[in-house]
Design a binder for these strands. Structure first.
Length: 859
RNA sequence: GCCCGCUUGGCGGAAUGGUAGACGCAAGGGACUUAAAAUCCCUCGGCCUUCGGGCCGUGCUGGUUCAAGUCCAGCAGCGGGCACCA
């Protein structure tokens, strides 16, 4: 047949798989279930190399598990709501739905060309009313359960996208998508009570043993649990005490001042009678929230002239400041400052000339010196602290908390950095929030029978603000309760809500309830979830919360949706800049042997930059479609799996892709040139095997054992290396002058090879399987099993060291007793010159023998 | 600033505390060919070599061990997360 033609073969086998429904997943299979899911894509227009990597990894797992006898659920869908569709509408005059659906059609075709083992009959798109109507029902259930609520809050406002962002969506003070500095605005917003589950979300991380440790650490930090105490301070001349939150109640005797947030009621009280205070508060509010603004901002305070009485020290009072660095949203919005043991408090005290009193003597250090520019935050023993003197910091925390609680002026408290999830978005292309605002009845849920609340088709996208708000008629409705005129909610849900339950919808994608309980009880949790590290906090934390919400409202019976998570690395590529300093596409750069580059058309010099994550802005993108056109999907898939471990970043190189293609051809030649000499399929094994055949079978069975172990552990790059070795071992033999036993063993080897490569390069595997004379499909074949007895090595070469340095090797039979190995090693030590000269007749002090590993002669 | 990870040939990377550099890419040499492509074979960490081999070598400095890329301590560089959270 000659050269392998991927284009023809891939199309042929994809058609065969589709025709046979090879990947349709049945709910009633007697096989054990396995749910493998890759994070579904946003339909931006075309697939990119990151998708190719993600879906190749998932497909290897899916196909491997199928071959291992599992009933595999491997679905695909579209994270289809979101702002780019509205931007396209504004810029190109195309309706967001049309733009989205066209992108989905394109990208579905591209994914199908990759030959993924996906059950396309379960495809969903979150922008489809058949999806979002159920999300609206879930919202109403959450509302009923108190998990969704509305409140006025200072929220993150993205001035470019003209919408609100959740805390998690603000990166370094900028919108996660627009990159614009985020402003603070006071707005009525919908929230999900993610903080209700803060403790559980934190504790349960310990159970997620098959999640990457760093993702768990990032979530732990994000939740930010802190143990401390709430302490009441009486303010001279006022009735209501001021409550502060602290994690260092042990340092209470070192308190030099109190500080409240500019948004604190106490600040408002002062502002009411003091114009200077009003000015200061206004200044605090005008401060930007960007990283630069925060770093540049000085710690500033405004002395309210109020005095607070020390709760444990009769007769002592401290000043009360309004300070620009105190957050209203955390703790009580007020703090006490202990300058000696907190850097920020020390900076503040130095600036305003407040006393610095040490109350912790550092462990092993001098306690008499002055506090310098650095606060002492380490452990130690309490001093200058009345009844706490002599206690360690830890003991003092306990002691002071007990005293505060006894005296009724404070209590232990646990706080979390995590805030409730703001889900309101002032956008069109999202799931409408199904409530109505009625002047008389308040917030009224839309009756379930009236769901879905559909988006209007005729919104305008050429004016600023929320298209739903701007729409002439859509928001006008009647109150479901009193039937009077009322206003529809015009906020839509954050698109992260859409992706917080899609994995549950896949279990029964056409069910007429949001989540079919029987189906999710069968399929959930997802056994293997695969996606990018960039969702470590956002999506993965939301999905964990939402699953708890689904559990609380009876939709599912579990709290953790993903029992194993794999985070793949990014795909990078070299960057190129022309002599104008503009980024250019790699395809437009011609790189010479010496590493310099020129522009393909102009011939002008091009600067070759470091490898970066592929992105449109750097133009260092390679179009997967073009690669598949040129080399085929199998080559793209093979490249994604070879060389780099999947969790690490992978650099796309043309040479690597060409190398992968050469190997695909080489694999095909191996099958093609061997096939005709082999015995027919299913020829019974010969009664006995000669030494050549036995050796070949040993290689085969060892390879099967190793690759199985590597695939199980996601070590695909190592599995690929083993396949190269296997092919190298098989390639030279043409079968001339070999016996029937050897030819039988060679068929065994090639059939194993075809099945081993099937998860990685499935089209070539089918072609090879057919060439080996089978009428069946390799996708229906079981994963090869290895025979331990055949795989076992009986002789092993081990190193002989002298004083830890390798001087020679000896061959021993596996499992040879220590004494025998020692004797052999010492005998060889005389025979092998290298070892003998290293020993130089010195007296042997000790001989260490590690079975099947090494001998070390110590002299 | 705090938390986490990484650092091995020209490059991507292998290596349950036990023969460092598997496998691949790139490079060099050779075979085949009128030629090229494709394919096949050989070499490929550094220094020295009488060609047997010797010495050094996994970011740096120490330590534990018969034995360290691997374990421990300190340092450096690179990358990621958090960012006034009291």
């Amino acid at each position: 047949m000659g050269r392998y033609e991927p284009a023809a073969a891939e199309q042929k086998w994809q058609a065969v798989w589709t025709e046979r429904g090879a990947f349709l997943c049945r709910d009633d299979s007697p096989r054990p279930k396995y749910y493998v899911l890759e994070m579904f894509p946003y339909p931006s227009g075309r697939i990119h190399m990151g998708h190719v990597r993600n879906y190749t990894l998932g497909d290897v797992v899916a196909r491997y598990k199928r071959a291992k006898g599992f009933n595999v659920l491997h679905p695909m869908g579209w994270d289809a709501f979101g702002l780019p569709a509205e931007n396209a509408a504004r810029d190109k005059g195309v309706h967001p739905r049309d733009w989205t659906l066209a992108n989905i059609a394109t990208m579905r075709g591209e994914l199908q060309r990759m030959g993924l083992s996906i059950d396309w009959s379960r495809e969903i798109a979150t922008c489809h009313p058949g999806y979002y109507q159920h999300q609206q029902k879930l919202f109403l259930d959450f509302l009923k359960a108190g998990l969704a609520y509305r409140k006025k809050a200072r929220v993150n406002w993205d001035p470019i996208d003209q919408t609100v962002l959740a805390n998690e969506q603000v990166i370094e003070g900028k919108g996660w998508r627009s990159g614009a500095p985020v402003e603070k605005r006071e707005l009525e917003q919908w929230f999900f009570s993610i903080t209700r589950f803060a403790e559980d979300l934190l504790q349960s991380l310990d159970r997620l043993e098959s999640w990457p440790e760093r993702v768990r650490i990032m979530q732990r930090n994000w939740i930010g649990r802190s143990e401390g105490a709430r302490v009441q301070w009486e303010i001279v001349g006022q009735k209501a005490p001021l409550e502060v939150y602290t994690t260092r109640p042990d340092t209470l005797f070192g308190a030099a001042f109190l500080a409240v947030s500019a948004d604190h009621p106490v600040a408002a009280g002062v502002a009411a009678r003091d114009a200077n205070a009003r000015a200061f508060i206004a200044e605090c509010h005008s401060l930007g929230t960007s990283l630069e603004a925060i770093e540049a901002a000085e710690k500033k305070g405004f002395d309210t002239k109020l005095r607070a009485k020390h709760p444990l020290k009769a007769g002592e009072t401290v000043p009360v400041y309004i300070a620009n660095f105190v957050l209203m949203e955390y703790g009580t919005g007020a703090i006490f400052g202990c300058p000696a043991h907190d850097q920020r408090d020390l900076d503040f005290a130095r600036k305003y000339g407040l006393p610095v009193r040490r109350v912790v003597a550092p462990a092993g250090g001098a306690a008499d010196g002055e506090i310098g520019a650095e606060a002492e935050t380490g452990d130690g023993v309490l001093i200058n602290s009345d009844f706490l003197n002599g206690l360690t910091v830890a003991a003092a925390k306990v002691e002071v908390a007990q005293r505060l609680e006894r005296d009724g002026i404070g209590k232990r408290e646990i706080n979390y950095r995590l805030r409730d999830w703001g889900v309101s978005r002032q956008r069109y292309w999202g799931c409408p929030i199904p409530v109505v605002h009625c002047a008389g009845c308040g917030i009224v849920p839309v009756p379930e029978a009236e769901l879905p609340v559909r988006l209007p088709d005729d919104a305008r996208f050429d004016e600023s603000g929320n298209p739903l708000e701007n729409h002439p008629t859509w928001k006008h409705t009647t109150c479901p309760r009193c039937r009077k005129a009322a206003r529809r909610e015009t906020d839509t849900l954050d698109t992260f809500v859409d992706s917080s339950w899609y994995f549950a919808r896949f279990c029964a994608p056409r069910a007429n309830v949001p989540v079919d309980r029987k189906a999710v009880d069968t399929w959930l949790p997802v056994d293997q979830y695969i996606g990018g590290i960039e969702h470590a906090v956002l999506h993965l934390l939301y999905a964990r919360f939402f699953t708890r919400g689904l559990q609380a409202t009876g939709h599912v019976g579990l709290d953790e949706p993903f029992s194993a998570l794999f985070t793949q690395g990014m795909v990078g590529h070299q960057t190129f800049k022309d002599d104008q300093g503009k980024w250019i596409y790699p395809a437009d750069a011609v790189v010479a042997e010496d590493g310099t580059a020129r522009h393909k058309d102009t011939g002008r010099p091009v600067t070759v930059g470091r490898s970066e994550k592929m992105s449109k802005s750097l133009k260092n993108v390679v179009d997967p479609g073009a690669i598949i056109d040129r080399f085929g999907a199998d080559t793209a898939r093979w490249f994604m799996l070879s060389d780099s471990p999947p969790e690490r970043d992978l650099e796309w190189t043309d040479a690597g892709a060409a190398g992968a293609f050469r190997f695909i051809q080489r694999l095909w030649r191996l099958f093609d040139e061997s096939a005709d000499q082999l015995p027919t399929p299913r020829t019974p094994a010969p009664k006995s095997f000669g030494s050549d055949a036995t050796a070949l079978r040993a290689v085969t069975h060892r390879t099967v054992a190793k690759i199985s172990a590597d695939v199980e552990r996601f070590r695909f790059n190592v599995a690929v290396a083993r396949l190269y070795e296997f092919v190298n071992a098989l390639a030279p033999d043409t079968g001339a002058a070999k016996g029937a036993d050897w030819l039988w063993a060679r068929r065994e080897a090639l059939e194993a090879l075809a099945r081993l490569i099937a998860p990685m390069v499935p089209h070539l595997a089918e072609e090879a399987w057919r060439r080996l004379g089978h009428a069946t499909l390799v996708v229906d074949e079981p994963w090869p099993e290895h025979d331990e007895a055949l795989a076992r090595e009986d002789v092993v070469t081990i190193g002989v060291q002298v004083n830890g340095k390798l001087r020679g090797t000896i061959e021993v039979s596996v499992g040879m007793a220590e004494a025998a190995v020692r004797a052999l090693a010492l005998k060889e030590a005389e025979a092998q010159e290298r070892i003998r000269t290293a020993l130089e007749g010195k007296p042997i002090r000790k001989v260490i023998v590690v079975q099947d590993r090494i001998v070390n002669i110590v002299v």
